[in-house]
Amino acid sequence: MSKEPQRNLEALRARIKEDGSAVALQLFGMTGHGKSSLINSCVCVLKNIQYHNIAGAGRSDGGMSNKREEHKLTKSLIIIDNRGFRKMMPQEIAEACAQIRSLRDIGKVDWDKDNLEETIRQFPLKYQTYQTEQHPHFILPVLVYSGAQTWNANDAECMEKLITNAYRITGIHPVIVITNRDNRNHNSILERFGELGAMRRLCIQNYTENNHQRTDERDQQILEFLDVCIREARRGINMQEGEDPQTRFVSQASEQIKLESDQLREQFRQENDKLKEAIKKEGCSVS
């Protein structure tokens, strides 16, 4: 690479490092789509160091994470690994919403568990953080999807629900990252996310355990991703300027409790219907 493009890379890296916005990039995506490898790539490229598998990625994005784990990129920017979705069921999307609303601690993630009780427990604890001068990071949702996957109708429906909910919470759409850029499917998947309303969509080729030879082109992709995330987060922060953080948090927590309560009621209704149907088959009357 000539000196001019190299200087551009260094300037972009410096700009990201010097930004003071308190931002947390919260990753979401199906298991094995490259979330942990994206973290490894970001740390390697931004700090301009040798590749290390600090996030515990499987070989060639095999999918190993089962918890949320923070990784510090700069003094004000963190990126949070996450357990991969399995089927993006309503419970999983509700849990993702709780994470975006700052109603979950770092640690083990259980997509199947009824977490209404956890939301109610976290509410007063998290509220206290808004009483201090140092407010929590602005959480920017980042949705990771592999370009090696075949897009289907179920993907579209589930992704749209997550994108819509994230927008309602933050006021901005999630940043979409298509990994496995070298796969021929990546452009069509990029278009599908555009049809779902996602505004910021990027294609990258992660560094992995099997392929971590640094190139300027791939470094550029990673740095551009981080730069887009910071700019989107700043936009979200500016949109919330003038709002009382405590009032906003109470409103978001109330919405989360309603979401999880509605899901619980629907679950009980379905189980009750199944019970009635089973009783009818046994020849008993049901009121």
Rank of each mutant, 00 (worst) to 15 (best):
K3E: 14
R7V: 07
L9E: 04
L12G: 05
R13I: 00
A14L: 13
H33F: 01
S37I: 01
L38Q: 00
N40W: 10
V43E: 14
V43M: 15
C44F: 07
N48R: 07
Q50C: 10
H52F: 08
I54M: 11
I54V: 13
I54H: 14
R59H: 12
G62D: 04
M64Q: 14
N66H: 10
K67V: 00
K67D: 07
R68G: 15
E70V: 12
L73P: 10
I79R: 12
R83W: 00
G84I: 00
F85H: 00
I100P: 03
S102W: 15
G107W: 01
N115W: 01
E117V: 01
T119A: 05
P124H: 08
T132Y: 06
P136D: 09
P141N: 04
A153G: 04
T164E: 13
Y167D: 11
R168E: 15
H173F: 14
I176V: 02
I178D: 08
R181T: 01
N187T: 06
L190H: 04
E191F: 04
G197N: 08
A198E: 05
A198P: 08
Q213D: 09
E217Q: 15
D219K: 03
Q220M: 11
E224W: 03
R234V: 13
I237H: 03
N238L: 13
M239N: 14
E243S: 08
E243D: 11
D244G: 01
P245T: 01
F249I: 02
I257S: 12
R265F: 03
R265I: 00
D273M: 06
K274C: 00
I279L: 11
